[in-house]
Simulated scan of single mutants.
Amino acid sequence: MNRAQLIVSDACIGCGRCINVCPGGILHMGADGKPCIQDFDEFGWNGCWQCQHCLAVCPKAAVSVLGRRPEDSMPMPDPTTAEPVMDALVAGRRSCRRYLHRDVPRETIDEMLELLANAPNGGNKQLVEYTLVDSAETMDRLRALARAEMERLADEGIYPEGYDEQSYGDLKRWEKAVRPDMLFCGAPRILIPHAPLGHGEPVQDVIIAGTYFEPLCASRGLGAVMMTFPLDVLALMPDVRAPLGLPEDHYVGMIAGFGYPQIPYARTTQRRIDEGRIHRLSPAWSNLPIALPGRS
């Protein structure tokens, strides 16, 4: 039997919020009017999901779990101040293709990786792994090796999936203006999220992790770019890909490049979704003759 360490202080008022949010359904109200946790066989679907929701919802900071104390949590932001900041981060996001030659502090990268543990993932299984290249020397070596092999393959008429001689030529032409490095967009650092196939929801989990990483970068003044082209390129050169140590049985959806932007945005863009791309459920749907459970 396993037991997630649950400590409930005298500040508990017996409101039951922790019980109502427990996805594993392993909390119940004890005879003393305080929440208790039942024994379970495993962490996960049939036991404690290790989500810490019980700790997070307690209005009196009375619940500690898994060795985590409520006083060590960050307070939730006020929506009136968080809304405009989040709106600006979303509206101001872009693919950064030019970077400064400036190191990203190790503590900043570690901080962002730790926060990625909060990204949604199937069943809270926490199966996403991260391959990080945070050394300028290593990144430059990877860039040079991949570029040399890519050029050699192009000379033989071999191009990444979805590309031909013309499209490859377009990429090389863009290097003179838009992005000096067509392979990794000049990113001085890269992060590769990946997860084991056949367990949980690897595709969704990896994509969501990458998506969460981008605003974490933006909030710290970093630029980011989500790239799939390098994956197609590296697929043609196993000897160059091998040092990355990406398991063959893992799903890899993108490579996230990041660093300090050479050309920062002065303001957000003003993109809009065309009304034709928004499909709202018709009010007439509620009048369909469907028999609902318990109703005649």
Results as ranks from 00 to 15, higher is better:
Arg3Phe: 12
Leu6Ala: 06
Asp10Ile: 01
Ala11Asp: 15
Cys15Asp: 10
Gly16Trp: 04
Asn20Met: 09
Val21Ala: 05
Cys22Asp: 00
Pro23Met: 05
Pro23Cys: 06
Ile26Gly: 07
Gly30Ser: 01
Ala31Ser: 12
Gly33Ala: 03
Gly33Arg: 03
Cys36Lys: 15
Asp39Trp: 06
Asp41Leu: 12
Phe43Gln: 01
Phe43Ile: 04
Cys51Trp: 02
Val63Arg: 04
Ser64Pro: 06
Arg69Asp: 13
Pro70Val: 07
Ser73Met: 12
Met74Leu: 14
Met76Ser: 14
Pro77Asp: 02
Pro79Glu: 07
Thr80Cys: 09
Glu83Thr: 08
Glu83Met: 14
Pro84Met: 00
Met86Ser: 06
Met86Cys: 09
Met86Gln: 10
Met86Asn: 12
Val90Lys: 08
Val90Asp: 03
Ser95Gly: 13
Ser95Trp: 06
Cys96Trp: 08
Arg98Ile: 10
Arg98Met: 10
Arg98Gln: 15
Arg98Asp: 12
Leu100Glu: 14
Arg102Ala: 06
Arg102Glu: 12
Asp103Ala: 14
Val104Met: 01
Val104Ile: 08
Glu114Ala: 07
Glu114Val: 09
Asn118Thr: 15
Gly123Ser: 10
Asn124Met: 11
Lys125Asn: 13
Val133Arg: 13
Val133Asp: 10
Asp134Gln: 14
Glu137Ala: 15
Leu142Asp: 05
Arg143Phe: 04
Ala144His: 11
Ala144Lys: 15
Ala154Cys: 03
Asp155Lys: 13
Asp155Ile: 03
Glu156Val: 00
Glu156Leu: 07
Gly157Cys: 07
Gly157Phe: 02
Tyr159Cys: 01
Glu165Asp: 14
Ser167Leu: 15
Leu171Gln: 12
Lys172Phe: 03
Arg173Asn: 09
Arg173Trp: 05
Lys176Val: 09
Ala177Gln: 15
Met182His: 14
Pro188Ile: 04
Leu191Trp: 10
Leu191Asp: 04
Ile192Ser: 08
Leu197Arg: 09
Val203Glu: 09
Gln204Cys: 13
Val206Lys: 09
Ile208Tyr: 03
Ala209Glu: 02
Ala209Lys: 02
Tyr212Gly: 08
Cys217Met: 02
Cys217His: 07
Met227Ile: 02
Thr228Met: 00
Phe229Thr: 07
Leu231Gly: 00
Arg241His: 05
Ala242Ser: 04
Pro243Ile: 06
Leu244Ala: 00
Leu244Asp: 08
Gly245Val: 01
Asp249Cys: 10
His250Phe: 05
Val252Glu: 09
Gly253Glu: 08
Ile255Phe: 10
Ala256Tyr: 13
Gly259Gln: 08
Tyr260Thr: 02
Tyr260Met: 08
Gln262Val: 03
Ala266Met: 02
Ala266Val: 03
Ile273Asp: 08
Glu275Ile: 11
Ser286Glu: 13
Ser286Pro: 11
